[in-house]
Design a protein around this nucleic acid. Sequence first.
DNA 1: TGATATTCTCTAATTTATAGAAGAAAGCCA
DNA 2: TGGCTTTCTTCTATAAATTAGAGAATATCA
Lengths: 106, 106
Amino acid sequence: MKLLSRQEEVVLLSIWKLKGNAYGVTVREYISEITGKYWSIGAIYVPLDRLVEKGLVTTYQGLPTKRRGGRSKRFYEITSEGMEVLAEMRQVQRILWKDFPEVTAD
Amino acid sequence: MKLLSRQEEVVLLSIWKLKGNAYGVTVREYISEITGKYWSIGAIYVPLDRLVEKGLVTTYQGLPTKRRGGRSKRFYEITSEGMEVLAEMRQVQRILWKDFPEVTAD
DNA sequence: TGATATTCTCTAATTTATAGAAGAAAGCCA
DNA sequence: TGGCTTTCTTCTATAAATTAGAGAATATCA
């Protein structure tokens, strides 16, 4: 079994979470929101491409919308293989994190 | 906040889990056992060194034992800072993985 | 002492992560 | 229509992390 890299995991989960609305910008916003830190453009698109290569996500070109202009979006969707890999990842993590103590408020 | 890399997370958790018995060889065995795959020596020691540098673990030289010879062990212990970082990591992961479906047996 | 066992140090090669400039593609409006 | 603005992506260079394993250190055993 091959573990996903950190960034692959985070991006892949974001795609899953964003359902039909996953594209570069929304993925980046979502990750920033959760981690509370800045992420460069490349930090998103590079692993995104790799996930496509690996067959864990598919991608398709979005159509122009009625909103103020701009290049059209490239959407991403998680594949069933992607879901399987995530499920395996969680398996490993559950074992690793088992019994790790809850934070005590002090 | 800076996320730990994948290998840093896995190694750090292993040290925590192995309590007083964490050194290169046991960490490597433990990770192999959980992931079911081969890990080179370097894949363990390199992130181990980095964790020391970052102050997330401390290290001390073990004494020779009565067992069949060999170089003495270098033990590792997680620091309180290491525990804090892990707690933060889990926080992020819980959000990311929230609602991810359980695997259905088929 | 020489053979054998155990563990670690070190470094090179590959893969990932990170940053952001530049450009493509769309709507807006004189 | 043509230029301006907005939105989003492509591309590429650099830094950091991962991975592999040869080789050396250090201990016991006979």
